[in-house]
Design a protein around this nucleic acid. Structure first.
Lengths: 246, 246
DNA sequence: CGCTCTGTTGACTAGACTCAAGGCTAGTGG
DNA sequence: CCACTAGCCTTGAGTCTAGTCAACAGAGCG
């Protein structure tokens, strides 16, 4: 992090995808947190059922939300990256209704509940940006329900890989960075088993759609993978300008 | 509907589950629509990809949202009942990213986009109530991802039946009204096939958990069905008071 | 009266899961 | 420096849940 860049800048950048905030709004938002922390991979940010007293802003790295069934099967319900506020649901309802954990080491800032709620009261433009963000999240959830409910394993995995690649690198990404998910985590995100994920990944790699080095996955041919995965980015609302790298 | 009750009263009742609105807020909300329309069963309210110019308020009856895959398989992603605003996503983004249709005949009121957006600008309490509503919706989406991704057919169907019963009739529902879903629609909501839904329903009926008359399903034993379905209503946020019948 | 839609049943198939074993890599402690 | 361990990945064999295909029954409707 460069000296001088405010800690919460990634949050502001993401919120401003739906339209610029005025200087007062931006300043008040940035004033909510001055310090960042680094979390290890696989650190727990929120636990299902526990009260939420602060909101975690993800400044870099990857995180995910998950729920478990009564038989202890885990489902990852969303992935998050730089610029996401992870706890808005818990913040508004007071209790987390799912787990939130880091996937990779992450830089985060914690925003206490009260000042944030207060800010939302005083700054309608910020409240609206948060709401819009929640609506886009919901759109992604709907697509995941479709993906998990109605697509076969190959299509389903291809779709997830496309979504993740596009969210990380944008639609015009060439080769794309390696994705930070283990096969077990991919299984939890797609509702498959790790064994089956392994076999499908081999098949995708054989078709030159992806490459695997050291276990990490790289998308080789996003357009063809998008065809295989029936991936249409409309639900991600790319009309909101892509995030600048940072 | 009694003469004199404002058309949008069901919407206000639902929004007020998260806390009362002041008189000004309530009056402005109610002023958004004076007329209701009746839609047939299976009527189309929004179509994937089309622009949204008005928001549909559901006053009575049932509706659902669905998406389809590239192979024309349909997934129902949410069910809606009295008091729900169906188009908030489309309203804020300008375009519907899924289909919305009625399940049963419905009374609805259409709220034009501009006055609603204007109201949200002027009335932060209403905006906040809408946002909270969206957050609760998102919580339900997450549970559906878990349900479809990680539970077997029997558990999955039982879970859906529990959720629907509780949302319609509340936690303390005795026998509950018949649910308005055909087996094909249950299949689309659970990611199963109609044939398999049929067989699982027979098994649930044999265990006296549900009854079927004229094809309509009634929950006989909600507590036991909740056990079978691993159903815990926390994600529906019942701490928001249940809707009064109406 | 025939058409369509929903529900039902049976026989068969297949996609994904389970179980089990073994390999590779990185980290740890002796 | 070398076992030893713990994750993660990989592979194979066998199983099973849920899907597919097909036919038919009953209700509602024009």
């Amino acid at each position: 992090m460069q000296a001088g860049e405010p800690v919460l800048m990634p949050i502001v950048r993401k919120l401003e995808r739906s339209g610029p905030l005025d200087d007062g709004d931006r300043a008040e938002l940035l004033a909510l947190a001055q310090e960042a922390t680094t979390l290890d991979a696989d650190a727990r940010i929120a636990r299902d059922g526990e009260p939420v007293e602060r909101c975690c802003a993800l400044l870099s790295g990857f995180a995910y939300r998950s729920k478990i069934t009564g038989e202890d099967k885990r489902q990852i319900v969303s992935l998050h990256l730089r610029g996401d506020l992870l706890d808005l649901h818990g913040l508004m309802t007071g209790t987390a209704d799912h787990d939130i954990r880091t996937l990779t080491p992450c830089r985060v800032a914690f925003i206490p509940r009260a000042p944030l709620l207060d800010l939302l009261d005083r700054r309608p433009a910020i409240a609206r940006a948060f709401w819009l963000d929640t609506l886009v999240d919901a759109s992604v959830f709907r697509e995941w329900i479709l993906n998990v409910g109605r697509r076969g394993a190959r299509t389903r995995l291809a779709h997830l890989l496309c979504e993740t690649t596009v969210r990380v690198a944008g639609l015009d990404a060439d080769s794309a960075s390696a994705l930070p998910l283990t096969q077990g985590q991919l299984a939890d995100a797609t509702g498959l088993t790790p064994v089956h994920v392994n076999r499908v990944l081999q098949s995708l790699a054989q078709d030159r759609l992806i490459a695997r080095e050291d276990g990490a996955i790289t998308v080789l041919d996003l357009p063809r993978l998008a065809t295989v995965g029936e991936f249409d980015p409309a639900y991600l609302h790319p009309e909101l300008q892509p995030l600048a790298a940072g």
